[in-house]
Nucleic acid binder design. Structure first.
Length: 347
DNA sequence: CGTGTTTGACCGGCGC
DNA sequence: GCGCCGGTCAAACACG
């Protein structure tokens, strides 16, 4: 395609779990991906990088894999998107996701998710850049008019919230992740027949937002992008929300990082297919087959067509990683799961 | 009645 | 400057 829009590009690291995987290997418990190599030629130095870095747009798949305590050698790493290649629209990300969807009934029967992180700075500003008005601004000053708050000083660009996107193979668009969201808008997106829905966390003072849209290339795939960090724990009294109740990530003790959200999503599947993806060509998908061990399966829970996914991964990560978050992470310490930080601070 | 969704209008950045 | 487009607002509406 030539007319590539300039959308945000997700630096995507995509974790995709696919149920079809016949997983016999639990990547998390076994710490390895059962994927075959893909295009790792591009590069990525093995230097470890924190999720923070990742958020900043400098991460690479290998690092990520490392962060996940996966062995790069066995894991599949796809080349990352070039910083300037904005071409990676959601659609591209999903890219061929292929796979087949299958079957999914509204329950998690067939669920396949992917995670991708977006860079917050390196170049990805695009959308968040404009979404400045949101939140804070409006509240107080507003008298002037509804949206017309021009309070923002133009000089300083609004800092973009870290974003984290992941793809989920699901029949339902809005996945239950433990938080309460209120839809505040829906828009048709260019190059996609499917509309994008905008949600905001309903908790007061929490400015976390998320966008949900279906991939036009693979309608069975839903792309969810989280923006910002929750400043509150996962609500426990969710309507039928098993996920939140079942586990409260340790991270949430203080605030809840958005990556968690997706981790939350990543639970409840007997088989996961974790994959890194590179928008380079649609396609991606390498998979790391995983099989949840035990209780997970039992915890699978679906409510109202919403899929609840638990934090299987989170648990796994925690089991393997020591939480060691340095002060300097500041905000990020709330945002970044320890597993991502772990290796990066070697400085 | 409280909460969440729908939906058209508006805002602002960006490219031409 | 204009139009496109993504993102947001908020009134109207739906639902329990």
């Amino acid at each position: 395609m030539s007319d590539e829009p300039k959308q945000l590009f997700y630096q995507d690291l995509v974790l995709n779990y696919n149920q079809q995987a016949t997983g016999e290997s639990n990547m998390f418990s076994e710490k390895h991906f059962s994927t075959s190599a893909y295009d790792s030629s591009q590069t990525f130095d093995p230097s470890y990088m924190s999720f923070t870095e990742c958020l900043q747009g400098s991460m690479n798949y290998n690092s990520l894999a490392s962060s996940f305590s996966l062995s790069p050698s066995s894991s599949k790493v796809f080349s990352s998107i070039e910083a300037n290649q904005k071409g990676s629209e959601l659609g591209d990300i999903v890219g061929g996701g292929g796979g087949g969807g299958g079957g999914g009934s509204e329950t998690l029967a067939t669920l396949n998710s992917s995670i991708s992180s977006s860079s917050t700075e390196a170049g990805a500003e695009e959308d968040s850049g404009k979404s400045k008005k949101d939140g804070h601004v409006k509240g107080e000053g507003g008298e002037n008019s509804k949206k017309g708050n021009k309070d923002k000083k133009k000089g300083e660009k609004k800092q973009k919230e870290p974003r984290f996107a992941f793809m989920t193979k699901s029949e339902v668009d809005h996945l239950e992740d433990g938080y309460r969201w209120r839809k505040y808008g829906q828009k048709a997106v260019k190059n996609s027949p499917y509309p994008r829905s905008y949600y905001r966390c309903t908790t007061q003072k929490c400015t976390v937002k998320k966008r949900v849209e279906r991939s036009f290339q693979d309608p069975t795939t839903v792309v969810t992008t989280y923006e910002g960090q929750h400043n509150h724990p996962v609500p426990t009294s969710l309507r039928g929300n098993a996920a939140s109740g079942m586990f409260t990530p340790m991270f949430t003790t203080s605030t809840t990082p958005f990556p968690q959200d997706l981790l939350l999503h990543m639970h409840n599947h007997n088989h996961h297919n974790l994959m890194f993806h590179n928008n380079n060509n649609n396609n991606i998908q390498q998979s790391m087959n995983t099989t949840t061990t035990n209780a997970d399966a039992g915890s699978i829970y679906s409510h109202n067509n919403n899929i609840n996914i638990n934090n299987y991964l989170l648990q796994q990560f925690n089991n393997h990683q020591n939480i060691n978050i340095p002060q300097e992470y500041g905000l990020l310490q709330d945002v970044v799961p320890s597993m991502f930080l772990n290796k990066s601070n070697h400085n």
